[in-house]
Nucleic acid binder design. Sequence first.
DNA 1: TTTTGAGTTGTTCGA
DNA 2: GTCGAACAACTCAAA
Length: 489
Amino acid sequence: MTTTALVWLRRDLRLGDQPALHHAVAHHDVVVPVFVFAPEEEKDWQPGAASRWWLHHSLTALAERFAKLGSPLIVRSGSSLAVLRTLVKDAGAEAVYWNRLYEPAVIARDAKIKDALRADGLTAESFNGAVLFEPWQLKTGAGDPYRVYSPMFRAAEARFDEIRKPLPAPKKLAVPSKALKSETLDALGLLPTIAWDGGLHEHWQPGEKGALQRLEQFASQPIAKYKDLRDQPALDGAVSGLSPHLHFGEISPQQAFVRAQQANHELSGAGAHGNIHHFVKELFWREFSHHLLYHYPKTPTEPMYEKFAAFPWRKPKDYAADLVAWQKGLTGIPIVDAGMRQLWVTGWMHNRVRMIVASFLTKNLLIPWQEGAAWFWDTLVDASLPQNTLGWQWAAGCGADAAPYFRIFNPVLQGEKFDAEGSYVRTWVPELATLPAKFIHKPWEAPSEMRRAAGIALDSVYAHPVVDLKESRDRALAAFAKIKASADA
DNA sequence: TTTTGAGTTGTTCGA
DNA sequence: GTCGAACAACTCAAA
């Protein structure tokens, strides 16, 4: 008696270390991979334009892999439950398997679907395909979720031996006896209608192959200098670049973790182990964000610390123009503009620069962090609800383990410290390309002769940034003093 | 229960 | 130019 299972793919677009797929292949004769396009089921957090671009290409790559294995990827749009039920019937399946996700709306949907499928008399099971530890696995001594990173990491570190060893990819799949209809990927309408995606193509290779190549490239050498070089945005290869691949599950964190451990054995030299350890710690920031979102599901829109509800942000009509300047990379602060333009062109921004632009938006411009989160959500290829939420709340000072209020980045000093020669700025803000390094991060201080020689007009934003850094810093400190006062009252 | 030590990523000021 | 202290107070986690 032949048994058939559906594997419902979501953001686990890989064949290697794929727990749901692995389980299906182990227990059933025929395995049908399914992708259901139902963005409205993600409620307020439907994928943004950059994310949709990535999804299209990742699915294209995955479909090719499944076609070669023998069981083609079935793509459908519509309600997830309705599509799954139809396919169960058409394929004669008795089981549906998938890997878990952790966004609040998706958790609620998946729980309903699991109940409904089981009520239909089917086997329905979910697996851990996205995190090293489940959110409920790491708890404080009192049984609460961790709200501070360091003790969370220490607790995890004591349990590294529990981390799953990557599962092998299936070598072939039985050809289903009945051909099931699949929509074309083009029909999903994920690609932009106007061609703004050239920069994305140039910088990324979505799909499992691209993900594994990135991991291998990074872990073969650069990882040994990760801690030392990771903060310099001009150094392309110093960071892993794995974030979008991890987001779409083109590799698992387990694969990255194990590869880092292997590098720890293979690589030696000055501080290699400490550098590699730092990369592992970064993987656990990703974990931490997933755990926090699971336990604090309102944080994508609301500050984790409630007193921040009273924070005196500027009003939309007052900040609208500044927000647009920030989005377009026209603030007149070179490192900020470089970052925002890198984001626009490549769908990605170096982490150090993300902190700088976030500090600038929330503190110097006093614009609500939710505005920044929304822009990142639409433009990042690695837009991830847990990580975007943690990052912005951290930068704004209202989230877990947040920066103290007085830690307001000075974008000039940050630029001089982490982009000393200004090569990052020169790459992304070409109108400053010929300005000497001494003034590259503060063109408004350059002598007018020098500015003219560099071709910076007197009415340029680089002669007149949208805010004065010192005044806006004082304004932010005063704003923080206000919520302190109101909390005391 | 109370106490204690610690807490990603910084800046400014003044000696 | 360099260096240490101040910037606050609170929350968290564990002993």
